[in-house]
Nucleic acid binder design. Sequence first.
RNA 1: CGGGGUGUGGCGCAGUUGGUAGCGUACUACGUUCGGGACGUAGGGGCCGGAAGUUCGAGUCUUCUCACCCCGACCA
Length: 491
Amino acid sequence: MAKFLTNKEENYSQWYNDLVIKADLAENSAVRGCMIIKPYGYAIWEKIQAELDRLFKATGHVNAYFPLFIPKSFFSKEAAHVAGFAKECAVVTHYRLKNDENGNGIVVDPTAKLEEELIIRPTSETIIWHSYKNWIHSYRDLPILINQWANVVRWEMRTRLFLRTTEFLWQEGHTAHATREEAVEETEKMINVYASFAENSMALPVIKGYKSENERFAGAIDTYAIEALMQDGKALQAGTSHFLGQNFAKAFDVQFTDKTGKLDYVWATSWGVSTRLMGAIIMGHGDNNGLVLPPKLAPIQVVIIPIYKNTEQLSVLSETANKIKADLEAKGISVKYDDRDNNKPGWKFADYELKGVPVRLAIGPRDLENKTIEVARRDTLTKETIPIDKINEFIPKLLDDIQTNIYNKALNFRKENTFFVNTWADFLKTLDNPGGFIMAHWDGTIETEEKIKEESKATIRCIPFDSPDEEGKCIYSGKPSKRRVLFARSY
RNA sequence: CGGGGUGUGGCGCAGUUGGUAGCGUACUACGUUCGGGACGUAGGGGCCGGAAGUUCGAGUCUUCUCACCCCGACCA
């Protein structure tokens, strides 16, 4: 079979880029670092959104929308937060253009300078907490459980489609609570929502854990994260949930009267996932034939391709094909019948494989005669012929099967690429070959973590919630450690 | 910001010692094909990233500039 993609074994990052472009998910735009998400890619994002939105609402959250612009002064209120984001903010300084007097086209009108510059949000904590100050007076106003679907801008030095773009789409939850316990519980609840979404919908196993102090969100007391392992042995942070303590409440002076009449600062959380999840799906499941989409997030779950010699034959086939399509759709399955005449079946087969469509049905005169249909699954690339009258019960099971299979495949891959390492030499060796997740002891200090990062390019991805107590020695400093933490090179 | 690379029809590329731009693919029409990226015939489409210079003549040489991509440091 002809090669349309770079082999991922040859050049993983080239494979990734090729795949994003050729599967028609996204492309680079005229603006540096910003991508155009194309309809097929956006359709996947919409599926992600729909399911997450359902999960957020099921856990009591509501959606709202806050402005894209944040007054500069808001930013300076929380010190750690400023430090974390200041160097990657886009700033609006003027509000008008004019024609250049020297005929150089359109220029910024210098007289239209803003009194106070506006920051294009890199995240919305500040503008949201500014509002919360007005909304919260009593414990009766709490909790506030708000989510926002939005775009944000972070002026990154180097970008990659979906994984790190200057502008990206995400959702950010911002909650306010009366007690520390409740906020911590919310933080945990949401990391669990993310983890179950990753595992159930994206078919990607993730490790839940605490971020080290170094890797924590700017302004958070504690950051929980889910980490997924990509097929090249690098980790991808797929979602974070932050316990913000009273930091933002204090910065924005948000106090409330509790049941006993005492004044206290509000407790906060924030949590988010982004279009980076698209990258996780691509890198987590894709193969050398293209994308492999989990059925639960595939915009097209089943594609039907007719094989015919002339229009009469096509119209006979279409009758059966449309019947199958209607029946499957009645079961809530999204089906595309591709009867376009401009490409041959073989071309379509390859194209839908590239696009990761989980199930392909091919129907031709031979099938019609035998009352059968050819069923091909994307995950295993295997084909079988089954009777048409069985298709209705067969396909839903098959989709479930594929969902489970690719999850198990990813889980096995992670198991095979998770290593328990006890010496620095082994640590370095394992990172280079084969890579993967490394469970190792760490003395708990920032200095050691930074040294490790400097010398190995690996970071502590998280301190897994379920990492058992175990006496050991720090892989780098040799100092005592009480549990292993998760190291990896990451995206 | 450092290192590497690339700018030529929509996309992917070629273009020799300077001589007035070509190939693949895609596109349009017609015909034959159609069970794993079909074929034939005909056709349309490019001031060669930009500016200045050398020259009778520049895609090609010189200088300047802009943009993008890849690899690092930063990050979801």
